[in-house]
């Protein structure tokens, strides 16, 4: 990946919201507002398999710089259940900054 990726949190949030709408197209996520406080489990009702698909989308977009599987793998089950979009945005921003 050679594209210039923004590390601006608002831009990353918009990117991830776009990916979530694609991942959740058949789950009826089109109309759901996605903010930093949105939780994957309770608000979006994503199952763990949906997180795998999101992981693939993140990899396509950000390449090697963002390792979502490793990020989620380090979390406890209750942390995964409580995971918010904002926490993922922060992880992506930090990963992109570290790789820059």
């Amino acid at each position: 990946m050679t594209t210039d990726l923004s590390t601006d949190p608002a831009a990353v949030l918009a990117d991830i919201a776009g990916m979530l709408r694609t991942v959740g197209a058949d789950l009826g996520l089109d109309d759901v507002e996605i903010t930093r406080a949105t939780t994957f489990h309770d608000d979006l009702e994503l199952e763990s398999i949906d997180l795998v698909v999101l992981s693939g989308a993140l990899r396509s977009h950000y390449g090697e710089r963002v390792n979502f599987a490793e990020f989620v793998g380090a979390l406890e089950l209750d942390e995964i259940i409580a995971l918010t979009v904002g926490r993922l945005v922060d992880h992506v921003v930090a990963s992109l900054a570290a790789a820059a």
Binding site: E47, S48, I49, L51, V52, S55, A69, V72, G73
Partner: peptide, 25 residues
């Protein structure tokens, strides 16, 4: 269950150890 049970647990470690990893639903 789904492949997620491995994707976020054993899978990455086996890839890091130099193996080719296949998970499926």
């Amino acid at each position: 269950d789904s492949l997620a049970s491995y994707y976020f647990t054993l899978g990455p470690a086996f890839a890091t150890a130099g193996m080719d990893v296949l998970m499926y639903d």
